[in-house]
Design a protein around this nucleic acid. Sequence first.
RNA 1: GCCCUCGUAGCUCAGCUGGAUAGAGCAAUUGACUUCUAAUCAAUAGGCCACAGGUUCGAAUCCUGUCGAGGGUACCA
Length: 543
Amino acid sequence: MKEKLISNISQCLANLEYPSIEVGIQRPKSPEHGDFASNIALILAKPLGKNPREIAEAIKSELQNSFNDNFESIDIAGPGFINFKLKKSVLSDLLLNILSQDSNYGKSSIGNNKRALVEFVSANPTGPLTVGHGRGAMLGDTVSNILEWNGYDVQREYYFNNAGRQMRVLGQSVHARYLELLGEKAELPEGGYEGKYIYDIAQKVIDEHNNSLVENSEDPIFKNAAEFHIFEDIKSTLSRLGLVFDTFFNENTLYENGEITNVVETLREKKLAYDKEGATWFAGTTVGREVDRVLIKSTGEPTYRLPDIAYHKDKFSRGYDLMVDVFGADHMDAYPDVMAAIDNLGFDSEKVKVLIHQFVTIMRDGNPVKMSTRKANFVTLDELINEVGADVVRYFFIMRGMNSHLNFDLDLAKDQSDENPVFYLQYAHARVCNIIKRGEAFDHPLNPQCDLSLLDKEIEHQLIQKLSELPEIIERAHSSLEPQTVANYLNELAILFHRYYAQEKVVTDDKALTAARLILVEATRIVFLNGLTIMGISAPERM
RNA sequence: GCCCUCGUAGCUCAGCUGGAUAGAGCAAUUGACUUCUAAUCAAUAGGCCACAGGUUCGAAUCCUGUCGAGGGUACCA
């Protein structure tokens, strides 16, 4: 609808021999301003050197000459806004369109089957997922859904590293608990993992190997057992949230296939890497970065930047058209070097979109909880799901913009879970379903042939108008990659629907009116269901 | 010190890439269940959009500076 209006106006501009500029259309906040509004006359005022209202008049009469069928009215208001009110018949067509597209309503083909890779969570297997990881997880999954709704072929990938110091300490921690459980004296290594789950893993090692490993503190069995069980745990948490990864990418692959050395050599050839003080450096300053950074430490061990570059190169070699990385704010400093390197290796870093979300502050008893996996004073995602349920967890993390520092009040989330805004949406959906059932029970089957012009209440007009917005919302969510757009939209729709429910009764003795209203309700059901599906939240038919 | 992200109602946050009178939810006050489920609705109250300048027809939104919060600034990830 919006596109149609834009093309109509562009046509008029051409007819009037005005300069062709991008036509902006808004949905006015106030219903008094019609269904759509354009500021086009205000923008043209300067280049044309004319009064904006004069221009608006000219456009208005041109529109009425050529496209009058679509409009109930065209008004000029304020400094020169043009307000459009759509004909009832146009609105009816919108409803029928929703019904015929059903579970596809809102999809766009903008992605054109292009391949997208979304990388997120990517927590190393050193402990259970925390509430802190939850935000990235939900953000990544919902962004993936949004891309799919926009016609992308999406792959969800989890990147991890099971080598290095952290994992070694983890193995040693398991060994220490192993000894302890066997009654031996043992202490956690310096900086060891204190979580209770380490005991669980140690117990599993005992179950399998008895006390045969007492002497051998560096036996890889400890590290491997830890990695295996922790990954199982992580996957089970993710699946409770409805999240399934297509691929797990082990950083080690990049060493095995030689890409790490390959990248360094290529960078050297391009004079972007050099040796100094026993280490290998990335010459960031020659490509506009602030300082040069170390790629390989003097110990011979690479820093995270190097595998990250190789990893992105690997992504490019797999032929994706769009790559989305989801990081926490602590990685803020990591990616610009990586992007600079990627560009200079001959790839187009524009294809990589980095989404940075701010941290979640957990509030317990009114105080912020400092989280550390190693110290084990975290709140796990699993615990949170137990307390409030997967739907609430999902919604909580995507209802806010990723740039806002999210305050998660645990006590509030637990105690007041009944008042969580997600129930507001789900309840609206359940109501919708119930009305349709009610209609069927009283012999009012859905009939798209009915007389939709009977939907003449102001609130019905607003509702239809809102329903027609879904495709725009989904496209906007795609261009901004901001899931909360969808959450906010559904919330607005729920407000309108609940108001409608309170004002007007749908199923009555008036056959014709009931039929028309049922079509409106059915369209509402479709939009709620599709919106909740994008967010990965269940849409119960009863509550 | 420097670099990011932010500062909007008492609290938690929206605000559609610059539009018309800044919006929700909690919390407060007051009404509405013989009803298509009250997990809801209606109403009242609550604001110098941190502060000061600038850009223009028009700024919560863009630019500069100040103050405040969080994060980063390692041969840690």
